[in-house]
């Protein structure tokens, strides 16, 4: 396949990567340079429209929107990464243990997973926010914990399928230890499914943070987060649309990018759809 054809078949992967790159880039840039202090209030300049001085305008306290958006991308990344890390980390451990041990350990672990999965994730987030106090930590934790069962089940299923497979049997017969089997054979083969799930979890974490912010339980002010900015701006829509438009766009585009990335990864990594794509052409 030449580059042109690759792009045509994997446009979603490419678009997803570009958007993710933009997100990382803006977060990285924010450490080096932001036009204004994102938290400095300036009542005299509130609700300023986009101009030379404030490229995207200002919010209800006269804070520079661009600076807040850029610094807010750090919050977005932190929320997503931590949620995925918790979900994936614990899920991998629980799912792997369940699959590998089998028997009553498997049974107990999976019942606990069922119990956690029976909680609507947002309810879990509200409970966490009540325990830890409002803030993005509760959101990250809650989304992470809520997705543990998904990761655990995926891990367990793909491990179980692979443990029985011929090449793992062969590796075992050749005398490879448990850790080695897991690291060399099980993880790489289960990675595809988990990676796709990770992009979805990342996107969900962003939306959950916005939802928590709507309920007043999201990120602590004055730290900028897109969800919180969107929520605050909603009350001021008739005075200035910009404080609502830009964070809303940022959330939508990022979630879109992550989902495209997930789809693209699935196409590339999943042999079934890959072959089907090739066949259709």
């Amino acid at each position: 396949m030449n580059r042109h054809r690759w792009l045509r078949h994997h446009w979603n992967l490419a678009a997803g990567l570009v958007i993710l790159g933009l997100l990382l880039g803006s977060a990285g840039l924010s450490f080096l340079y932001v036009p204004h202090d994102p938290n400095r209030t300036n009542i005299a300049d509130r609700f300023a429209p986009p101009s030379d001085r404030y490229l995207l305008g200002t919010d209800q306290y006269g804070r520079d929107l661009l600076s807040r958006m850029v610094v807010g991308s750090r919050t977005a990344i932190r929320v997503g990464v931590v949620a995925v890390a918790i979900g994936l980390g614990i899920g991998l451990l629980v799912g792997g243990m369940a699959a590998y041990s089998g028997g009553w350990i498997d049974e107990i672990l999976m019942r606990i997973m069922d119990a956690v999965a029976a909680y609507p994730p947002l309810l879990l987030a509200i409970l966490f926010a009540s325990i830890l106090g409002p803030g993005d930590i509760s959101g990250m934790l809650a989304i992470g914990v809520a997705t543990v069962p998904v990761f655990a089940r995926l891990t367990r299923a793909s491990f179980l399928a692979l443990v029985e497979s011929e090449f793992v049997q062969a590796a075992r017969a050749a005398g490879a230890g448990t850790a080695r089997v897991i690291c060399r054979h099980l993880l790489p083969n289960g990675a595809a499914v988990l990676l796709v799930q990770a992009t979805t979890t990342f996107a969900n974490a962003l939306l959950a943070e916005a939802a928590l912010s709507y309920l007043g339980l999201g990120t602590q002010p004055p730290h900028p987060s897109w969800g919180r900015m969107l929520r605050e701006a909603q009350d001021f829509l008739i005075f200035s649309p910009y404080p609502a438009v830009f964070p809303g766009l940022a959330i939508a585009v990022t979630v879109l990018g992550l989902n495209l990335l997930g789809d693209g990864l699935r196409d590339v990594l999943d042999p079934k759809t890959r072959s089907s794509a090739a066949r259709r052409v």
């Binding site: 939306l207 916005a210 939802a211 809303g248 959330i251 939508a252 979630v255 879109l256 989902n259 495209l260």
Partner: peptide
């Protein structure tokens, strides 16, 4: 994609 990316309260 748009449907998934839009917060429901919005």
């Amino acid at each position: 994609q748009a449907g998934i990316a839009t917060p429901s309260f919005w």
